[in-house]
Design a protein around this nucleic acid. Sequence first.
DNA 1: TCATGTGAAGACATTCACAGCA
DNA 2: TGCTGTGAATGTCTTCACATGA
Lengths: 207, 207
Amino acid sequence: MTPKKIAEKTVERLIVIHRILVSQKANNIKFIYSHEIAKLSGLSAPQIRRDLMLVGYSGSPAKGYDVSKLKNTINTFLGFKKNKEAVLVGLGYLGRALLGYFNGQDSNIKFSMAFDINPERVNRIISGVNCYHIDEMGSRLSSSNINICVIAVPKQSAQEVAWTAVDNKIISILNFAPQHLRVPENVHVENLDLMTMLEKAAYYSME
Amino acid sequence: MTPKKIAEKTVERLIVIHRILVSQKANNIKFIYSHEIAKLSGLSAPQIRRDLMLVGYSGSPAKGYDVSKLKNTINTFLGFKKNKEAVLVGLGYLGRALLGYFNGQDSNIKFSMAFDINPERVNRIISGVNCYHIDEMGSRLSSSNINICVIAVPKQSAQEVAWTAVDNKIISILNFAPQHLRVPENVHVENLDLMTMLEKAAYYSME
DNA sequence: TCATGTGAAGACATTCACAGCA
DNA sequence: TGCTGTGAATGTCTTCACATGA
């Protein structure tokens, strides 16, 4: 499906641009210039034009880009599908927050199940999501078609969870554990280390 | 305080390396080679040596780097201080999770207060942190010495929160709202957009 | 022998600046 | 006039590869 090899940063920017287009469309804006997107996104205008070049949509110098058409083009380009499913592992503070946060938004992606090792957290429904014991993860994943896994467990367990995941159809992981995961080559890992980010913010709080 | 202008990515890597050194020290490891750090962090060995060059610590080819000394050098270089304070705005799912998550870890950075607009969420203690109404944010910040702010409010309110923050001593923001923040030049903004990250993970889940 | 420290090369990402067009 | 689309230039980051030293 992935047409060419696109830089990760480009993918990120296109997602951001796409969201801006969605919101502009909701506001009934029909056309938009690159510098307007720039203002809203914090990206630079030439950068945006370059990214849009890549997706192969042409605007007009007179009116700018057709919001609706451009949105659809990016949609297709990124292969967005409706109702994509993901799975969450780890129902601590962070995990439960993610369930509420993501499943509350109007997003294409929903968690369709979650796992934890703690018996008190499982066999119930949290934010509309069925929660099971981690022992069931392998079998439930392999009998599903889910291939996105979000890991929100303590770092000691993260690698083990990742192995179970990649053994059962998962090919993309969003990892919140501050732990480098070893995975097969074809599996994508997106690390999101909150502690590092907070420490980074702290670094820039010194003058 | 910031000695030279260090690339943001370098800062991130140094934080990661630092954490690895802390954990190695806890395991009583005295010396470590760059390729060992590489294995643990997912970074490349030359990259690590380059970063360490920058902090100005020299290892020995025979034994590698002295874990304890290197840790302290990075500590000093990054200006880590004990018990740095931050403030949280937004006590929804995500905000409450961050309180539990960060204040539970053994970190140098703690939240010392939190704010929300919803009366039901304030004037109480959550995960050991005093929660106040957003109206009190300005006065409480200005009478404190906190200069790190974590924003976990809906995107509609994020810019307003940011303005209150920067008007009251905040110079570094960790922003979870999917919204570009306009701030004065001297203020650092670290964006952490969970929805974009999940969508990015979804992108890489297609073959 | 094997790892460090680092100049030089290479890869990658961003911006410049302008032709072309409505 | 003021935008888009884009070749070329610039800037930044990463890796290579090897001299050096224990």
